[in-house]
Amino acid sequence: MGELEVFSNHLKTKLRLNTVLRLMDVISEGIISFSSGQINWVNHAFTSLTGYNYDEVVGRKFSNLKLAQLTDEQLVEVEESLIKTGKWRGNVQVQRKDGSAFYCQLAVNSLHNEAGFLEHSVAIFTDITGEEKFKQEQLRLQELSAAIQKSASLSAMSAGMVHEITQPLNSIKMIILGLLYWRDDSNCAGTEELYEKLGEAAREIGRIEEIIRHMRSFATLSREPEFEECNINGSIARIMKILSQQLSARGIKCISELTENLPAINANLNRLDAVLINLLTNAMQALDQVEHNKKELICRTFLEERYVVMQIIDNGIGIDERILDCIFEPFVTTKAPHQGMGLGLSVVHNVITRMGGKVAASNNEDRGATFTIKLPAFL
């Protein structure tokens, strides 16, 4: 090969390289090329993203810039991934020259020569600050909606709780009045009778303590709930008892069609109770809007393949077809403003999904609606 041909090939290679560099200089992602840890080229987008100019970074060690704020776990992950596959990708926080930070997706690729030795590495920075802020806002809204729904559920429970606590309080009152009567009467009760009455009072106080304990645990739902084996029929029976006064006052007949000996489910009991209260409250509100005198609410459970299925069925007004497909999205509602913000069903969806389950809504053929929840069974 003559010198002229060698020079020509070298010139073509240089022209191709310059073309590639110009193309890389106009794309929106920031790019760094470095070898042996030392930066040898950056594109225009990188300088715009970070505030560093070309001369400030070229020739410096990549690690000395402290651009990507990687945790110790991420550093180990990057090293292992580059050794095994020659590339790594992840979301990191990047610090600008002025000290401010932004979120980006960082992709690192290693280029090896024919002998297998590392020659160059390329890091590509894609600004995802908007996406990260959107995710954080979504998380904040989910936490807010859960708090609002918890407050609404506690409000729905309060009337039933008052009734539940009033009963044992009345029993305790009658026991105490009886003891006072015996004290004033010449024919006083014997020691055994006295102890028996005190035992009855203690049992009634225990009932009140159990109710208060349940309310307290419900009011302090943690962000990361603990899961345990739960009996879904037991949860339904407990919540139906709490809401029984409200159902009766509204003239609603409640029918339980609970399959016996169902397998347990893996759930958080308090959050499962919150789901039940939400769905039953919605059903009661739907039945409030109908005029017929045969208002019915059916709670049904059964086993379907590997799922324990629960259905809440009412013969109320049904669900507006316009929102049926998006009813579990936040702020979707047809209720009046004073009746809710449309957050309850989105919370139900989030809770059931985190338990590994599914939730669906449908209109009945005649009237009313059905909400179906499927949760994995312990088989």
Rank of each mutant, 00 (worst) to 15 (best):
S235M: 03
G318L: 04
K61D: 08
Y181P: 02
V347P: 08
A123N: 02
C104F: 01
N278M: 11
S153F: 09
E3T: 01
N18H: 11
I232V: 13
S145Y: 13
L65R: 12
I32V: 13
E132V: 09
L21K: 15
S155M: 08
M161C: 04
T13A: 15
E304I: 04
A237P: 00
Y54F: 05
L144R: 04
S36Y: 06
S63I: 13
T370N: 13
V78D: 01
K87Q: 06
Q246D: 15
D325E: 14
C188M: 13
S110E: 14
A146D: 11
M310S: 04
I205V: 08
S28Q: 12
E204V: 05
E77N: 14
R250N: 05
A336Q: 14
N278W: 01
I27C: 09
Q246F: 04
E143A: 10
K84S: 04
Q69V: 00
T166A: 15
L221H: 07
I176L: 10
G357Q: 02
I148V: 12
I323S: 03
E329C: 07
F7P: 00
P263S: 06
H120K: 12
G342S: 07
V275E: 12
E228C: 00
N170V: 13
F302N: 10
V6G: 01
R223H: 09
F302E: 07
I165L: 15
R203K: 11
R367S: 07
I312S: 02
D273G: 05
Q289C: 02
A361V: 11
L75E: 08
Q95R: 15
F7S: 14
F302C: 06
E204A: 13
I208W: 02
Q285D: 14
S33T: 06
E29N: 08
L258M: 15
N170K: 15
I148F: 14
S256K: 15
I39G: 04
G344E: 10
T47P: 09
T370Q: 12
S63G: 07
Q246L: 15
E79H: 05
R216D: 10
V359F: 07
K335L: 03
Y103K: 10
K294S: 06
L343N: 08
S100K: 05
Q105M: 15
S100W: 06
R207M: 06
M174A: 09
K14S: 14
Y54T: 06
A286L: 12
M341I: 08
I277K: 01
M310C: 09
E329I: 02
N231F: 04
I124P: 06
F371M: 14
I83G: 00
A189V: 15
A68C: 03
I252E: 06
E193G: 07
M24S: 02
A201C: 05
D273N: 13
E304D: 14
R16V: 12
S48N: 04
R22V: 10
H349P: 01
R207E: 10
F7D: 11
D55V: 02
S346P: 10
G342N: 11
G116Y: 06
L343H: 12
M355P: 09
K84I: 07
V162E: 10
F125C: 00
E119L: 13
M240N: 12
S110M: 07
H44G: 01
S8E: 12
E291H: 09
D184K: 04
N233C: 09
I255F: 05
L279M: 07
T129Y: 02
T71N: 02
L21M: 15
L375F: 05
P263C: 07
E200Q: 04
N268F: 03
L70W: 06
V122P: 09
A336Y: 14
V332M: 07
K135D: 00
H120C: 03
